Simulated assay, not measured.
Amino acid sequence: MTDNGVVSGRGPAGERVLVAASRLFYERGITATGIDTITAAAGVAKMSLYNNFSSKEDLVLAYIQARHEEWLELYRLRAESARTPVEQVLAVFDAYIDHARFEYERGFRGCGLLNAAAELPVGAPGRAEVRRHKEQVEAILADQLAPLARASEVPTLAEHLSFLLEGSMIRAGLEGGVGRLEHARALASRLLGTP
């Protein structure tokens, strides 16, 4: 993992490309960010990019996977300190809040994965990867809810919390801050029967 939270099995030049692309894709968008801009920001030759990524689509996919791993690590850290089943569920919300609190150069713009998916055509591998991330978040919620609800209620409750989480993330991105995410966490806590 780099100091920017990006995970990569690539060499140093490839990692610099991925770190630069990750920052630029989040700040400016995928479509608006060209290969020349990425290589200039990474301080590498264009050939270094293509030695590590077969195409811009491959780089976008690596970006999405890196953001997913970055979030998973934030969640793991939060889950490790959770002492109760309710805190385990709320750790998912806390990880989203932690992600929103990163020092983004141009401010918080919401979920980088949803932003990326919005730019990609239906059927693109990157969209499928974003969907897998969102499904994994919902599965984590379901796993953590298992001790708190009847088995027949867990899928619906996990979906409900997932919608609460994702809706609050969209609003937080529009508003440029974590307030909506914090409010969603409080709503989830009340829904789970804690003050």
Results as ranks from 00 to 15, higher is better:
A146G: 07
L165D: 02
L141I: 09
K134C: 14
V178A: 04
F93T: 04
P85L: 03
R109K: 15
A142V: 06
R76D: 15
V130L: 07
G123C: 09
R150K: 08
A95W: 07
E135G: 06
Q88D: 11
I140G: 01
L161Q: 08
V178H: 00
R127F: 01
L165P: 09
L141H: 10
P125D: 00
G176H: 04
R127V: 10
G107L: 02
G126C: 10
E80W: 00
R150F: 06
R127T: 11
G176W: 02
E138W: 01
F102A: 08
E119K: 05
S152G: 02
E105H: 09
C111N: 15
S168R: 10
C111I: 12
Y104F: 14
L174F: 04
D143H: 07
R180Q: 07
E175H: 05
V89I: 04
R127S: 08
V86T: 14
E80I: 06
L77N: 09
S162M: 09
H133G: 02
A95D: 11
L161M: 02
S81K: 13
V92K: 06
R106Y: 08
V89F: 00
R171V: 10
Q136K: 15
G167D: 12
R127P: 07
L141W: 05
G107W: 03
G177C: 07
L174S: 05
E138A: 12
A142S: 13
L174Q: 12
G167N: 11
E135K: 07
A124E: 03
A139R: 15
A149D: 05
V154R: 06
R101V: 05
L161T: 00
L77V: 08
S162L: 08
L165V: 05
F93P: 05
L164M: 14
G179M: 07
R171Q: 06
L157Y: 01
R106E: 14
V86G: 02
C111Q: 10
L181R: 01
R150H: 12
R127Q: 10
R83V: 08
L145G: 03
E135V: 00
L181E: 04
G176C: 00
E135M: 11
V154G: 11
R131C: 10
Q88P: 00
V89T: 03
V86L: 04
Y96R: 12
G123Q: 10
A118E: 14
R78Y: 02
A95M: 13
D94W: 03
E105F: 05
I140P: 04
L114I: 12
S162V: 03
Q88F: 01
L145Q: 10
S81C: 01
D98R: 10
L161V: 08
